[in-house]
Design a protein around this nucleic acid. Structure first.
Lengths: 197, 197
DNA sequence: GCCAATTTTCAGAATATTTTGAAATAAAAC
DNA sequence: GTTTTATTTCAAAATATTCTGAAAATTGGC
């Protein structure tokens, strides 16, 4: 876009740096359960800094049109890439959020919604199967079950384990909520953690 | 182990709760880039609460001996499962860490070592390719490069993007370090975040 | 309405990951 | 040492995931 000649050493180095960044980002994402190509498309858009169309993305990464289309849609659903219309061009353009902190919060919000919330619900349901101490159903009925079976102790040990897991996930959930809400939540957290030896 | 008869309703419910927990844990792990079976084996050991041998794990999950062996080794390498020898038994037994916070810190330490640290190093190397402002190589040599090419502005915009990414990863790294070090770091963080509106 | 440009969809192909099982190795018993 | 039991290894098979490409659908211009 900006420069035509790419024998300029600066341009070649820039291209090399971009490619390295894209590869890095894709690698890291796939470590964390995000499809490599999805992260690479995001990286291309992020590092370009300006809107790109589907063909730019396709040739930038050497992927098919179908793949580019599906991946761009997924990125939009995640809320980290947005559509732009450029005047006088019929194609659609896409641009990535440039503010890393905003990006982080968006991803966190999405993962909480898709993963943490359902997990919490399921864990609570699981806990209710063997209710003791807290609320829940369990079996037949009223106060004091039929007989204290041989497994009574093991049920209580089991419940203690599930409860500690629940407490852990609830804490993660609560921290996520705060980070999602507060603009500079992470920086704040780091500062606070630093003070508290 | 504890109870022989499993027509006891309590025992059936307990089994059901265990199975649900195992499935949940496996599902969640695979969302976060950890092989499902690895998490399931960990879950079996965690929820059992007592040491189990390879055959117990195999039949508990319906996996092959080879798979159980490899997965148990991987869990040991992660440091979240340990080997025990039981008196009068020739088989090896395995047990999972029961303290969730300890478990969390162990996993965090390992992921930092395997993923964050290499990422940081690579990002810094990438940044050095296009050095401006900070240190680094770049090209030929002395002060003031040959000519200010057409891409000068785009290089600086690129550097700004990489720098913000670097700052972000450095913050994640620093927070991880603190959480790994401090016993109750997460609870602390949550409390602090709660106070700071 | 039509036409051309662009985007989406999805069955099948390509790729990557995980699992098996049996042979090889190791460890304990004697 | 031999025998028996337990564990590890790894090539091949099974499974799961991701990608392609061309047909179908959509969109914008007129």
């Amino acid at each position: 876009m900006v420069g035509i000649r790419d024998h300029e050493p600066v341009q070649r180095t820039l291209r090399e740096a971009r490619d390295r960044f894209i590869a890095l980002w894709g690698q890291m994402a796939s470590n964390w359960g995000i499809p490599r190509t999805m992260a690479e498309v995001h990286a291309v858009l992020f590092i370009a800094g300006e809107p790109m169309n589907t063909d730019d993305v396709m040739e930038g990464l050497g992927i098919s049109r179908g793949n580019a289309s599906m991946t761009l849609r997924a990125l939009q659903e995640w809320g980290i890439v947005s559509r732009v219309h450029l005047r006088g061009d019929r194609k659609e353009y896409f641009q990535a959020e440039q503010d890393i902190w905003k990006l982080f919060r968006t991803i966190l919000r999405e993962r909480k919604k898709r993963e943490i919330d359902p997990l919490l619900e399921a864990l609570r349901a699981c806990r209710n199967l063997t209710s003791t101490g807290s609320g829940g159903s369990g079996g037949a009925g009223g106060a004091g079950s039929r007989r204290i079976g041989p497994g009574r102790a093991s049920v209580e040990a089991h419940n203690a384990r599930i409860d500690s897991m629940l407490a852990f996930v609830e804490m993660i959930d609560s921290i996520s909520q705060r980070l999602i809400a507060s603009g500079k939540g992470l920086q704040l957290a780091a500062k606070l953690l630093a003070k508290a030896s």
